[in-house]
Amino acid sequence: MVAHRYGKALFDLAEEHDIRRPLLEELTELKGIFEEQPELNVFLTSKQISYLDKVKMIKLLTKTASQTVTNLLNMTFDYGRICNLDAIINEYIRLNDEFERTVRASVVTAIKLEDAQKERLASSFAGVVGAEKVYLDEKIDPEIIGGVVLKSNSYIYDGSIKTKIARIKRLLLK
């Protein structure tokens, strides 16, 4: 709920000031920093760390940041919502994807796909879900034997050999 309100307000502000794309890039970079340094979130929320040390860290994080990101970090820190920062950024990314008609999906295959295969898969999937662009996060799982499993927020397609074998097995056991 908090993430939705903050993310929506941030997105509306970005739209109003025509900074939607640059803000997306900056927020994605900030999200990466927190993912690479998980202890940063612990540091900023810990009761054992002094308020002044936390303020110094926020200043360090905002040293090269835009005014919008600086305001976001300061506000979430001041209101005790810094722990929601990742969810706020995720909501902003979701709203931006919706605006750009972009879908992020994971694709699981038994072997690594070639670039041409990924492009065809992304193009086909875009047609199915009505998106203009599809970003595929590729994962390899030899246990699916063959085929492909595609998952996005609103769609799951399981065309793996493992699932087909399981389906046949269920039919034979009836």
Score class of each variant (00 low, 15 high):
T45A: 06
V55C: 02
L61K: 14
S50C: 06
Y51G: 01
G80D: 05
R81A: 01
M57D: 00
S50V: 04
N71D: 05
T62Y: 02
M57G: 00
L44S: 10
S66P: 03
D53L: 03
S46L: 03
V69N: 06
T64V: 07
L72I: 15
I58K: 02
T76M: 12
D53H: 09
T70E: 14
R81H: 05
T68W: 11
T62W: 05
R81P: 06
L72S: 13
N74G: 11
I49M: 01
L72H: 06
Q67I: 13
V69L: 06
K54G: 00
V69W: 07
R81C: 01
Y51R: 09
S66Q: 02
T68V: 15
Q48R: 09
L44P: 07
D53P: 09
T68D: 13
D78L: 10
M75T: 15
K59D: 13
Y79L: 11
R81D: 07
Y79T: 11
T76D: 07
K54S: 01
L52K: 12
K56W: 06
T64K: 04
T76G: 05
K63D: 15
T68N: 07
Y51D: 08
L72C: 13
N74W: 12
T64G: 04
L44F: 10
L73F: 08
Y51E: 13
I58M: 02
S66W: 06
K63L: 13
Y79H: 14
S66G: 08
A65L: 07
S50H: 08
L61N: 05
S46A: 08
L44K: 05
D53E: 08
L72Y: 10
D78C: 09
Y51N: 04
L52W: 07
V55S: 02
